[in-house]
Write a protein that binds this DNA or RNA. Structure first.
Lengths: 230, 230
DNA sequence: CCTTATTGTCTCAGTTTGTGACAATAGTAA
DNA sequence: TTACTATTGTCACAAACTGAGACAATAAGG
């Protein structure tokens, strides 16, 4: 990792949302031998678009290429600067700062993105510095380093704000889904229960859904239609 | 301007909105002896919060301290990198890159903010590299350097999206204003005419306005009330 | 064939929004 | 003083939208 390969002082962090078991979840990494948890993030190559750097990182973590991705804020407070913490992370990986990693101890400004992916499509992969990369329900996050907790809060807030405006919830589901599954996603994001009939009416009126065949679950009741987004 | 005073590779640009003569306007700077126009921007000191750097720059350009300011996007494409352009700017000011300004020729990622200010409160001041800092209607902008045109477009789009959600239009007016003036601001931002009675009803129902005395303009008709925001 | 859980649709009331009407000014002109 | 004009604050009515429940139509299982 030669110093000049990356832009110094600039990082990105990604809040990767998934949905399973009725919970909104995000991917969290745990660093080797430290018990420290953090958002997946990375650096920008000197000849690489910022957005492409994030997509590259996301691909490495999830294996996915077509990802719904949105930049939502850039965090630039001086209080982000904690060289002792970074030194701990590096040393826990047997890396000495004087081996060309000095730049990682500098102050960083971080551009934050959130991604929406289909939980089923992914087997999370840790990076070189991490033991694990795992899903955590947003209500049961471990303590995170730096201002990462703050980043998550702002990601959720932005996602809520955009939910109706951009009708973006479907990106957390498989291509085909039932109206009830879509409603569960909305409820998990908003943190409130919604009325079934009102939700269905609003979604159908938005004219963004295509109705497909019915889904027979084997249960003793009327089978729901499957839908996909146009 | 010693190199280590500022974070390299990181800049900010600000889209400073004002309102006069029925037009939405922004501040544009013209660089010395070049005919090049750009958004007001600057760099972040090594020990300064990103947001504070922007407020500092805004204060230098406008003299104002209490400013409505919002970060809206960070531009990080490689295509922003145009060292010849920056060299031209520096040389037109009699500055040689080898005098400690080499870092300004590097690739920059720019965090973009928009500000809403009261046009009447401001006498724009150019910075060291500029001949002028002047208001331009958003529909009559000169050709801007780099991706600044793009930044302006995104600022306007964000402002439109936030207009109803945050009831933010009043920041472009003096403390006290008439309902008609507020409507004119909204129309200039949205680029559409609004219905007088509907607009008035919505604003009053939002319970964010305080009604004051009437404003007598000397014209031959009923005088409107003055309002301020709570 | 009867029961049960869930779904798609409809209804009805309550609320919000679009649209025009209208009286109340604050001046000017006769 | 008395018309006359332009603009404002408010109301009235219809249209559209939303909340809340009702209900018939399933898809199994017993």
């Amino acid at each position: 990792m030669p110093e000049k390969a990356f832009l110094p002082h600039i990082a990105y962090d990604s809040v990767i949302f998934g949905f399973s078991d009725g919970d909104l979840k995000i991917l969290i990494m745990e660093y080797h031998n430290t018990g420290l948890f953090a958002l997946p993030g990375g650096f920008v190559r000197a000849d690489e678009n910022l957005n492409d750097a994030v997509l590259r990182g996301l691909h490495e973590r999830t294996g996915l290429t077509d990802i719904y991705l949105e930049q939502f804020y850039t965090f630039g407070d001086v209080s982000r600067f904690e060289p002792e913490l970074m030194r701990t992370l590096l040393e826990a990986n047997g890396i000495r700062p004087d081996e060309g990693y000095q730049w990682m101890l500098d102050r960083f400004i971080s551009v934050a993105y959130y991604a929406l992916i289909n939980y089923e499509d992914v087997t999370p992969k840790p990076d070189a510095l991490s033991d694990s990369c795992e899903w955590y329900p947003v209500n049961e996050l471990p303590k995170l380093i730096l201002d990462h907790r703050n980043i998550v809060e702002k990601a959720i807030q932005t996602l809520r704000d955009n939910l109706d405006r951009k009708l973006v919830g479907g990106n957390l589901l498989p291509k085909k889904f039932t109206m009830n599954e879509l409603q569960n996603v909305y409820e998990a994001i908003l943190g409130t229960k919604l009325r079934r009939t009102t939700f269905q009416r609003k979604m159908l009126a938005a004219e963004v859904l295509v109705r497909h065949e019915k889904l027979f679950s084997g249960k003793a009741h009327m089978a729901p239609y499957l839908y996909s987004f146009k």
